[in-house]
Design a protein around this nucleic acid. Structure first.
Lengths: 343, 343
DNA sequence: GGCAAACTTCAAATCGCTTTGGGATCACTG
DNA sequence: CAGTGATCCCAAAGCGATTTGAAGTTTGCC
């Protein structure tokens, strides 16, 4: 069933039917009702391909994920971010186009999407501290929203980000207030913007209390359980092991916990741990009472916000860049406590 | 730059240019080379929207993920499966359309995609033991490949699946051979087809050795660390705790491990564990030596295979359904050993 | 040389919708 | 009653490709 057939059945022109369906004012209410009823009865749905060609809009948004060919690690937050964004697209009649491209091929991928007219805008995932994609997209002229901000150029493009620096600053201060002086940092890869900022927050908190910088207490790597375990193990095996940890993710934290418990220590009593909790659906931090004390910010919400921001931007491409800096909550769990006396 | 402009620059008709670019035989080689060179020089890329309208093909594949509104758990294998599928689409000039829909709204979502002409086919994720989506799609007439098979109707549609029954049968037999008699099953939700089959494998292995069915040693739930921990904890606190576990995923296994170690036991010595390892990129089972003994099958490979199967099906919709049953490897890790003497 | 077959190329129709630029029709003024 | 706006509807021209059917050019062969 297409527009032409439907209009013939109704004895109207395609023009009128199209206008009736799309809510244009120049059509009689009686006529409009007839049209809407007929459309519903015949289960008519306008052909997306034709709409796209006619309007010149793709009614689709692209999500391009970089994957380092070397280790091929998909970011675990991916699924939940997407889930949040998807809600918004569905509500607004947009489709979500996904592609996963090798680490440096993103720019050509963007150019391709643009010149093929396959999308109206894109979301930039996993922003690096220095990220070539951002100037590239500005050059290409494809509307975009970044999930995260590069270190520089903060205001010239739209982004949604968590206040990573403050989150880790607060977490570190919380541990310092509990008396912890040696705090291990189990960070993500610090070429990523979010990880770099978290490190800054950590360092600033220590510096403010006059605590000396100790490279042996700062690890940076993939945010896997295994990596978290290894990093924490190394630190715990020092002569002056840390009494607390700041871990970059739920998985890292689980690795840290294993390292602690594997040494016969108890998390929350002998060694404190704070994680960054993205509220991933399949990595919940406990059910009622949080297992880990955590800085928490829902990545699904971030997905929703970024998607909405992008649609707004597409609707009005001339508008100034939008920004949204989310604050992470500091929630108390069972993994932190005062520094043990006997240490 | 569109076809018309390009053809004007070349002094040719759009017809010829189109044919030259698409490799049709009725165009002179000299002309073709001229066209190709000009296309490259002007960075011409045909407009996807126009191609789609003209050819009537969407050149896109849909991935629809069901999300139970209650718990909203995204399946962790999602990201890696998608990554595998994406490779294939990219190679073949297809786009991947993703949407996440509430648990029972899938059918209308399929109908929508079909009548809008937004996709040429879909992948069905997370097949349940009894799954309404499969007959629905057959009714709608949208080509599809299921990742998993429902309990019945095995041959009337295309699927890619792992031999889940045999995987758990082999794993259980391996444990039985090591002398374990009480084996705890920490399964996924058994309304899912894969989990139901794994349970069958487990049960069949025990039955073949004349071991009595013990409901207290069989848990079924979300495949999270927390759920795995709770299930294993309960079993370990029995008067006759299991000496081994079969866990449905890496995350479940991590929970089981925590339950074991939290009781002062050592995994691999006091209690054995075998997991099902989907080879998720961010949940690697160790780097060189596997941590867990595991039945292993790459979900990324499954994504590749399913995607290719779907493209084949789209290319020839009249062909008979395709099937691919993958066998999981049983790989030896550090989490299994003979049943302890003193028990 | 002549005629058919094979090559090349093109004009125009098509896909299914939106949107521009008018035409009717009708009621309301002055 | 002619003139002026509203109001309602339509024909036709896009959007940018593919594809059909046909025309013009070579080539091949007797």
């Amino acid at each position: 069933m297409n527009l032409k057939e439907l209009s013939q059945k109704l004895g109207l022109s395609p023009t009128t039917v199209s206008r009736a369906l799309n809510g244009y004012p120049e059509v009689n209410d009686v006529t409009r009702d007839r049209v809407l009823a007929a459309a519903k009865r015949h289960n008519y749905r306008p052909n997306t391909r034709a709409i796209r060609l006619a309007t010149g809009r793709a009614m689709a948004v692209g999500h391009i994920f970089p994957v380092a060919t070397k280790n091929e690690i998909m970011n675990p937050i991916f699924a939940d971010f997407i889930a949040g964004a998807s809600e918004i697209y569905t509500q607004n009649g947009y489709d979500m186009l996904l592609s996963i491209v090798a680490d440096g091929a993103e720019e050509s991928s963007y150019r391709d999407l643009k010149s093929r007219g396959a999308v109206d805008g894109v979301i930039v995932h996993a922003v690096r501290a220095v990220d070539a994609r951002i100037p590239a997209l500005m050059d290409i002229g494809l509307p975009f929203v970044a999930h995260g901000r590069a270190t520089s150029m903060d205001d010239s493009y739209s982004w949604v980000d968590v206040n990573n620096r403050r989150a880790f600053l607060r977490a570190a201060n919380f541990l310092l207030d509990l008396g912890h002086l040696r705090i291990g940092l189990v960070n993500g890869l610090e070429n990523m913007a979010f990880a770099a900022r978290r490190r800054t927050g950590y360092s600033d908190a220590l510096a403010a209390r006059g605590i000396q910088h100790d490279p042996g207490l700062m690890a940076s790597g993939e945010m896997t359980e295994q990596a978290g375990f290894l990093a924490a193990s190394q630190m715990l095996d020092r002569d002056d092991p840390p009494t607390a940890f700041l871990a970059a993710s739920m998985l890292s934290g689980m690795g840290v916990r294993r390292a602690i418990e594997g040494r016969g220590l108890r998390m929350g009593r002998d060694v404190s741990v704070i994680i960054f909790d993205d509220e991933l659906s399949y990595l919940r931090n406990g059910d009622d009472v949080p297992i880990f004390t955590a800085t928490r910010s829902s990545v699904r919400d971030a997905g929703r916000i970024a998607a909405q921001m992008l649609l707004d931007l597409i609707a009005d491409p001339t508008s100034a860049p939008h920004h949204r800096l989310l604050e992470a909550d500091l929630i108390l769990g069972q993994s932190t406590g005062p520094v043990p006396k006997h240490v």
